[in-house]
Simulated assay, not measured.
Amino acid sequence: MRVEIWSDIACPWCYVGKARFEKALAAFPHREQVEVVHRSFELDPGRAKGDTQPVLTMLSKKYGMSEAQARAGEENLGAQAAAEGLEYRTSGRDHGNTFDMHRLLHLAKERGRQDELIQALYRANFAEERSAFDGDERLVELAAGAGLDADEARAVLADPAAYADEVRADEREAAELGANGVPFFVLDRAYGVSGAQPADVFAQALTQAWGERSPLRLIEDSAAGGAEACGPDGCAVPRG
């Protein structure tokens, strides 16, 4: 079974939601047969590369709230993260463009290190003192720490076209699926879960989606002994 997760590194609920989903997945009996794929979604696609500002300032301007209100919201998010065993810096963080991070995540997917990189990016953005938006070499450092080749990551960042189409394709697909916010979880293209739901909601979704994979149950006319059909040995011959 495949679970696709649309998310953005700048999204605190994606950080929390990933932890809650993983808690449910860890307890899922068929977890070894679940493939998790991370998809791209930018919350602030119009922001220019290198244009960063403090998170509290961004929240105040974007939502028309006071800095005290923005700080209270961050404190609440910090408590939610702590409840999931996550570190969360409630002040001193930056906000910026995440397009290059998503491009690197597509490289990481090809190299089998996608989950390691997204976790490293989340940790850098939400828990570490040094900003995740501190230039290309910061991203190269994080990529290398996640098991990617530093020179390969550096080459991707130097080429604006590298994996750009893949990021845009993910974002178009999110729109087609009706995802206007993240995190957004899609299970086997049969069920969608929106938001950082509690772990038990994810557990229920995993169980339900897995159940849909059960073998087909045939409906037959028992009195007729089954209908005629064709197979590898030929076709049934009608008898008068």
Score class of each variant (00 low, 15 high):
residue 3 V to H: 00
residue 4 E to G: 08
residue 5 I to S: 00
residue 8 D to Q: 06
residue 12 P to Q: 03
residue 19 A to R: 01
residue 20 R to V: 01
residue 21 F to L: 03
residue 22 E to Q: 08
residue 23 K to P: 04
residue 24 A to C: 10
residue 24 A to I: 03
residue 25 L to V: 04
residue 25 L to I: 05
residue 26 A to W: 00
residue 26 A to Q: 06
residue 28 F to E: 00
residue 30 H to D: 08
residue 34 V to I: 13
residue 37 V to P: 08
residue 44 D to M: 14
residue 46 G to D: 09
residue 46 G to F: 07
residue 47 R to S: 04
residue 50 G to N: 12
residue 51 D to H: 12
residue 52 T to N: 14
residue 55 V to L: 14
residue 56 L to P: 02
residue 59 L to P: 06
residue 59 L to S: 07
residue 60 S to E: 14
residue 61 K to S: 15
residue 63 Y to A: 09
residue 64 G to K: 06
residue 68 A to Y: 12
residue 71 R to F: 08
residue 72 A to M: 10
residue 73 G to W: 03
residue 75 E to W: 11
residue 80 Q to I: 14
residue 81 A to F: 00
residue 81 A to N: 01
residue 85 G to W: 01
residue 88 Y to G: 03
residue 92 G to R: 10
residue 94 D to M: 14
residue 94 D to L: 11
residue 97 N to V: 04
residue 99 F to N: 00
residue 103 R to H: 05
residue 104 L to K: 01
residue 110 E to T: 11
residue 115 D to V: 08
residue 120 A to V: 04
residue 123 R to I: 05
residue 124 A to W: 01
residue 126 F to P: 00
residue 128 E to K: 07
residue 129 E to Y: 10
residue 131 S to K: 04
residue 132 A to S: 10
residue 132 A to M: 04
residue 134 D to K: 04
residue 134 D to A: 12
residue 139 L to M: 08
residue 140 V to A: 04
residue 141 E to N: 07
residue 150 A to Q: 08
residue 153 A to R: 00
residue 154 R to P: 02
residue 155 A to E: 12
residue 159 D to H: 08
residue 161 A to M: 10
residue 162 A to F: 07
residue 163 Y to I: 05
residue 167 V to M: 06
residue 170 D to I: 03
residue 173 E to K: 15
residue 175 A to Q: 15
residue 175 A to F: 10
residue 176 E to Q: 15
residue 178 G to N: 13
residue 181 G to E: 02
residue 182 V to M: 04
residue 186 V to Q: 01
residue 186 V to K: 00
residue 189 R to V: 11
residue 189 R to I: 07
residue 190 A to T: 10
residue 192 G to R: 07
residue 192 G to A: 15
residue 192 G to W: 04
residue 193 V to Q: 01
residue 200 D to S: 15
residue 202 F to Q: 00
residue 204 Q to H: 11
residue 209 A to G: 10
residue 210 W to G: 13
residue 211 G to T: 12
residue 212 E to F: 12
residue 213 R to D: 13
residue 217 R to Q: 15
residue 219 I to S: 15
residue 220 E to H: 11
residue 220 E to S: 12
residue 223 A to Q: 15
residue 223 A to C: 09
residue 225 G to T: 03
residue 228 E to M: 11
residue 228 E to Q: 09
residue 231 G to V: 07
residue 232 P to E: 08
residue 235 C to F: 07
residue 236 A to H: 12
